[in-house]
Structure formats: C-alpha cells, structure tokens
Write a protein that binds this DNA or RNA. Sequence first.
DNA 1: TCCTAAGCGAGACGGTACGTCTTGTCTTCCA
DNA 2: TGGAAGACAAGACGTACCGTCTCGCTTAGGA
Lengths: 190, 190, 190, 190
Amino acid sequence: MRVDRRVARTRMALKHALFTLIIRKGYEAITVEDICAEANVGRSTFYLHFASKDALKLSGLEHLREQLAARQQEALASVAKGDGFSFGLALFEHAREHADLYQALIGGRGVGIALGGIRQILSDLVRTELEALADGGSGEVIACEVAVQYTVGAYVAVLTWWLERGAEPSPEQMNEMVRGLTARGIWAAG
Amino acid sequence: MRVDRRVARTRMALKHALFTLIIRKGYEAITVEDICAEANVGRSTFYLHFASKDALKLSGLEHLREQLAARQQEALASVAKGDGFSFGLALFEHAREHADLYQALIGGRGVGIALGGIRQILSDLVRTELEALADGGSGEVIACEVAVQYTVGAYVAVLTWWLERGAEPSPEQMNEMVRGLTARGIWAAG
Amino acid sequence: MRVDRRVARTRMALKHALFTLIIRKGYEAITVEDICAEANVGRSTFYLHFASKDALKLSGLEHLREQLAARQQEALASVAKGDGFSFGLALFEHAREHADLYQALIGGRGVGIALGGIRQILSDLVRTELEALADGGSGEVIACEVAVQYTVGAYVAVLTWWLERGAEPSPEQMNEMVRGLTARGIWAAG
Amino acid sequence: MRVDRRVARTRMALKHALFTLIIRKGYEAITVEDICAEANVGRSTFYLHFASKDALKLSGLEHLREQLAARQQEALASVAKGDGFSFGLALFEHAREHADLYQALIGGRGVGIALGGIRQILSDLVRTELEALADGGSGEVIACEVAVQYTVGAYVAVLTWWLERGAEPSPEQMNEMVRGLTARGIWAAG
DNA sequence: TCCTAAGCGAGACGGTACGTCTTGTCTTCCA
DNA sequence: TGGAAGACAAGACGTACCGTCTCGCTTAGGA
C-alpha cells in the first residue's frame, strides 16, 4: 500500500518534471536525463516506470485529455443551442486557463505534441452534433466526415494561432468570430 | 561551370534520397548516414552542402513549395471566379499526383513535417483573396486573420484526412464539398 | 566495491590492448576503435576512462615506470657499491624481460614513445647518486646537470641500440662495458 | 628551364612554410592545409610535389643535414687533436646559430624530429675517430659500437637539454664540460 | 521489533548518431 | 601545360543520449 504511494509519487514527479521542461525549453530538446534531474529521480528509476520519453508524454497527456473532455461534456449540457457548435467557448476558456501548457503542447516550441488528442476529442463532439442535425440520416457519410474534419481543423488552427499571439482577443470574442464563419461561411462573415 | 553542375547533382541526389527514405521509413527514423548511403555520397560531403537533416528537408520542401505555388498561380488565372477559393482544385490535384510524398510529409509516419510549409503557402493565397474581397480595407485585421487561419486549418485538415483514406473521392468532388462549407457555412451545406 | 573492480578490469583491458597493438602495428597507426575492439569495450566506455589514446598510453607507462623504479630500488640496496652507477644491471635485465614492450615503446616502430618517461626515471636516479657523491655541495649545479643529461642520454642510447640488435650481449656484459665508459672515460675504456 | 625554376620555387616555399610552422606550433599540430596556406599554394599542388607532410619534412631535413655534415668536416680538419672528440665545438656552435630551427626540430615541441639524422652524422664521425684510435684493430667490434652509441647518445642528450634551457652556457664551455666527461669519466669530472 | 522484499540512486557499459576535421584523389578551369 | 580551386570519399575524432545492467542503501509492512 505504502509502496504504491511511493511509486505514484515518483511517477507524478516525472510527469510534472516533463511539463515543466516542455514549457521551459520545448519537448524535442529534453533528454531523459533532464527529466530525472528535474524530478530528482535516478535515470534507472525512470526506465523502471516508463519505456521512453514518449511513453511518459502520452501518460501525462491522458490526464489533460480527460480534463478537457469532462469540461466539454458539461459545456455541452449547459449551453443553450444556437447555430454553431456549443463547445467553442469551453475550448477557448480551457485553453486560456492552462495557457502555459497549451502553448507548450500545441503552439510554439512543442508544435502539436498534443494535437492528436485534442483533435480526437473535438472530432467526437462535432460528429455527434452534426449527426444529431442531419438525423433523418442522409446516406452522405463522406460529406459528413468531410465536414467534421473541416470544422475540427479550422477550430484547432484558430486555437493554435490565438495561443501563439498571446490568447489575446477574449475567448468570447474568438468564439463569436469562429461561430460566424462556421455557420454562415466566409463570404458572409468577412 | 561544370563544378556547379556537379554540386547540383549531389544536392539533388541527397534531396531525392531523403524523400525516398521518408516514404520508406518515416522522417524521424532516418539517419544522415542512411541518406548518404542512399545517395551514394560521403557523409562529409553531406555536411558540405547541408548543416543537418532538417536543413536538407527544408531545402527539399522549397522545391515542392515552388511547384505548388506555380500550379496555383496558373489555376488562379484560368479558373472562372465563383464563390469560394480558387486554389482548392489545384491543391487536391497536386496532392493526388504526388500522393506518396504528401502522405509521407503530412499524414502517417511523418506527421506534419511539411505542414508548416504548406500552411504558409495557403495562408498567403487565402489572405490575398480575402483582402481583395474586403478591398476598401475594413480595419478588422484580426477578424481577417482569424478567417485565414480558419480556412487554412480546415483545408489542411481535410486534405490530410483525404490522403489518409487513399485520396478517394475525386479532387473535383472534394473541392466541391469544401467550397460549399467554406462559402455557405456548415449548416447550409450539411 | 564490486564496481571498482569492474572499473579496474576495464582499464586493465584497455591498457593491455594498447600494448598488444603497439607491438602489433606501432603506436601511431592505432585507432581508439582498434583499442576498444581488442579490449572488447565500447568506444564510449573508453572515453569514460581516458580522454584520449595518449592519456591511456601515459597511464600505462605509469605502471611500467613503477615496476622499473621498484626494481631499481632493490638493486640499489643489494648491490655492493663499486665505481659506476648501480642501476645499470637492473635496467638491462628489466628491458630484456619485457623485450617486446621495450622494443615497441623505444625502438623500431614506436620511436621513443616512452623515452620521456624512462629518461625521467633514470634522471632522478642518476641525479641522486651524483649528488650523494659531491655531497659537500659544490655550487656547480650546471656541471652536475650536464653530467646527468650526459649519462642518461648515453644509457638510453645504448639501451635502444641493444634492444634493436636483439638484446644480444648479456645484460651483465652490457652493464660492464657501459660502466667502464662511464667511470673511466672513453679513452681509457676504448 | 623556366618551368623548373617555378617548380623549385614552389617546393622551396613549401619547405620554408613547414619550418616556419614547426617553430610556430610544433610538427604534429601542423596540417597539410596549414602548410599550403602559409606557402600560398593550392592543396592539390602540394600533393603534386610531395606525397605527405612527412615526405616534405624529410626533404627539408636533407638540406639541414648536408649543412651540418659539411660544417663538421671542416671542423675535423682544422682543429688540433687533443683528448676527446673534435666535432664538439662545431656542433654546439652550429646549433646556437640555428637555434630556432634546432629547438623546433629537436627539443620542445617537435621532440626529436630530426634526431635520427643528426645521430647518423655524429655516429659516423665518432666511429671514425674511435677506429683511428684503436687502429691496431682489436676484434672488439661490439665494444666499439657500444662506445659509439654511448657517445652519440650522450652528446645529443646534452645538446637537447642545452637548447631547451636557452643555449645558455657558451658553446665553448659546453664543449669543455662534455669533453671532460667523455675523456676521463664521470667520477673524475664530477 | 526485527527482517525482508520493494523502490530507489548511482553509475558502468555497449551502442548509435552526431557534427567536425584531415587526408589524398580527381576534375575543371585559368594563364 | 602547370598550378589553383575545390568537390568528393573515407574514416577517425570526441560528445551526447540512449536503454540495460548491477550494485548497495533505505524503508515500509508483515512476522
């Protein structure tokens, strides 16, 4: 029992060290030795718990991923339906709250380390909303999937750009702009 | 003079070797030595021309970039203006023609090696078209840039997805779908 | 504790490999990689213990040096003082015993790799004996040093020549001849 | 003819550059490229004339060697016979005159590059004088050769030491001291 | 309370790749 | 045609990380 806690503490220290270092100098530049030094852990101990730097990263991202997913579930529930997607605001707000980490994982130095995870979450959300809309069930599976990819790509790109320029216009403004583009198209919005 | 040609041949061999190897086993797994072996070039010669594997990659992308830019210039000229962007068809066609390379550079193994480059090219094109539209010059610089990021992200995401599923619906069809989403919004198009 | 032994074994293996290779193909022609292959040691491990081929050589000579010094200490104690230096016999005998190594280090291929070291040892011995002689301490420091250099140079030159011609006249005979020259001068001895 | 002169000039420039660089930073540290830069000569031109750095060195030493041999021939002729060898003074004087070069070639940095050559010359001189002495022809060839090696080694060692300490006691004094040691032995001289 | 299995730090080790440096060959151009 | 320029292959260098391993120390949980 107690031993388990010791193990957990070591793993936590490693995950935390990784994020700290990602923010400090970017994912690629980090070595296993750096992480161990930061976490005050022996290098052999590292390999006792994780097979590689990448394994540690994935394990760490899982946590972030869950947080974001939960956040957006609740957003989905509480927000009144308008035209456009309901998760937008939650996404921008969550990103701004954890700006450091997002910037490290998505923009700037750690270009897109966590993008895969975020895309996955968003894809599921978008697909759900879109299918609910076209419920009658047009056979147009491909068209739907194109729309999903299209939307997710657009949101993520905007999010990345926004983080890189310092999360500047407020989440509300960002959400409004993007919702306009999504719902009525570029020409109408521009 | 003749020397220049020798140099050019060596560089070409290296670029070509890199692409071959990217397709064969993915960018990260490639070693400078691998490239030299594939290109029949001494390792010191490699460093005579390029500072690193990354420098070679960038130099190689430059070539691709020019090709794509030229292609879209001509598309821009010949295609009648409709609603939506004019580069779409050229993009999908170019990607299908060089499917191997695109897949190596964007999807699958070499996740997003070249995305930066392609994004840059598309951004410029989109920005130009968008500015031409809002010519009077509304002060809405931010809104415009959001639209650029939005559009480019969307196109690239769809392109990636399309390449990963085998470039299946024809470029014309893809272009049509994406143009619809872009011009009239998700709800209208869905 | 055990680790120390492991380290010692590795270092020994490297030193031994170096001497083996010096005999086999001469010092200059040896590569760090050669040494590692001969010693069954990784190249990075080599650099963990020694900064360069030269550092390894010096470390190896230190060992030889100690052996020789000890040998001459005991000779100094046991041999009755006559005219001439007391270390002569020990030197020639030691050289003959380790003929391979001496030849590799001094004559033939590895011209004078270890000469510096050997000169140093002999210089100290000669200087001691000479100072003991002129104990009262004549101010003639220069003359004394000239005598030291003279004697050491002479002994080393004869030693080298002797090794190159196969260590042929016996150490006793060699010692006798050189002692004569040293003590009574060329004209008397010749 | 004119071409020959051009060739000779190039070779001279290379030899000269080598000596300059030996004095400046020692033989081992010099690269072929250094030499060419110093001589204002293309690297490929270097290889047109000499197979390697070593070949150039040998070619250069030949010149020095001849000079020294000539000098000592004349010394041999003019000096009145006393006890001890007649070449001593000439050796020390020649060394002091070309102190830079001697120091580069023998002492300090370029430890003993040219020693072989000098030893050879001295050996011949010593052997000649010694054989003249024991003309009757005792069969003691070995003893004689030992004396030769002994003497040459001693002279060269003293010469080296003298050069390293700045050629300080005058050639005359040096000659006197060494002649004493040679003729009457250490004990008498000390 | 001791003692025994675990987690852990330390660090040696064999590898692999890096980017640099020097060598010697070869080809092309210029005077 | 001799020499300058410099591309090129070869291969050693010393450094940086990697992942594996063996070693003792410490420390908590069951006897």
